[in-house]
């Protein structure tokens, strides 16, 4: 029983970060058909920002806020400079643009921070472990689950309860009609880049608390996990993205618990086999596809 509870908390925590990543990516897709392979590098830059700010002596909380704001701005700048000129072009053009963005931003990180792994000095709240009876819960897992809940809540409030949010939903559904009522596509796009960037900033803080070292190439894993979650959930659909993220988290924990040690190394291969199977059998994802950002 305790073991089961432990696994559920683990799965929720891992799934939370995947779900958030998938949320940020799928929003950009639902509005701009943007498949952004440069998403993970935003987490990396956020983490480097946090590293630099804490090393400069700023309190951790302030550094977190500044790094999230920084990633949000970086995402908006990238969106404005690199992606916006290609919006309306075939999705493949945007996809290739995202690879170019990834290269540039990644090499900027190499130049700025070097390739040596760096470690952020997280406060004890991120590293302590809570003991409840036989249950052993890292505080980071609770922080992760709680943060994800707050982010998802704020996301839905913005999208469903604010005028800006209704513009985003309208643009995802009927882009031409949205222009016809006088909404500038640029306003909607920048809103989406800001939301998607803020999510990347938050996930960056959580991600490297768990994984430890940052390198300029640490972006691959979060990017891949986000895309797997999206494939599971269906591209362009928010509820699907969240579901896909948690499903992937559950799957990973399930495998780490049940698979014999000799097979554990093949975990990514098993995950990708499942992804391929889903792409063949149910290309619109387990949630069924319909573009819907909220």
């Amino acid at each position: 029983m305790t073991a089961l509870l432990q696994h559920i908390i683990d799965a929720l925590s891992v799934g939370s970060t995947y779900a958030l990543l998938a949320l940020g990516l799928t929003l950009a897709f639902s509005i701009m058909n943007l498949i952004n392979f440069g998403y993970g590098i935003l987490l990396v830059w956020g983490a480097y920002g946090l590293l630099g700010l804490t090393e400069a002596g700023l309190p951790f909380g302030v550094a977190v806020i500044l790094s999230v704001v920084g990633v949000t701005l970086l995402t908006m700048i990238i969106g404005r400079v690199a992606f916006r000129p290609f919006i309306g072009a075939p999705p493949i053009t945007l996809l290739i643009t995202s690879f170019a963005v990834l290269q540039i931003v990644q090499y900027a990180a190499i130049v700025a921070w070097g390739e040596k792994p760096r470690i952020i000095n997280y406060p004890p709240a991120f590293t302590d472990v809570l003991h409840i009876g036989a249950l052993r819960v890292p505080l980071l897992e609770i922080i992760t689950i709680g943060t994800a809940a707050v982010v998802v809540l704020v996301y839905f409030v913005i999208l469903n309860r604010t005028p800006l949010g209704s513009k985003v939903r309208a643009a995802a559904e009927l882009p031409d009609m949205t222009r016809l009522v006088g909404i500038r596509p640029g306003t909607v796009q920048m809103t989406v880049f800001a939301i998607s960037g803020a999510i990347a900033g938050v996930v960056g803080v959580l991600w490297f608390a768990k994984s430890g070292a940052i390198t300029p190439r640490s972006d691959l894993e979060p990017t891949l996990k986000a895309f797997i979650a999206i494939v599971l959930g269906g591209l362009g659909n928010t509820r699907g993205a969240l579901l896909g993220g948690f499903a992937l988290g559950a799957l990973e924990v399930l495998m780490s618990v049940t698979l014999p040690e000799s097979v554990l190394g093949y975990e990514p291969a098993i995950v990708f086999a499942i992804v391929i199977a889903i792409l063949i059998l149910r290309p619109s994802g387990i949630a069924g596809a319909k573009v819907n950002p909220a």
Binding site: S166, R169, A170, A172, E173, L174, D176, M177, L180, N292, A294
Partner: peptide, 10 residues
């Protein structure tokens, strides 16, 4: 417009 183009999600 033709087909009314109501925002169904709004």
């Amino acid at each position: 417009p033709e087909g009314r183009q109501i925002f169904g999600s709004l």
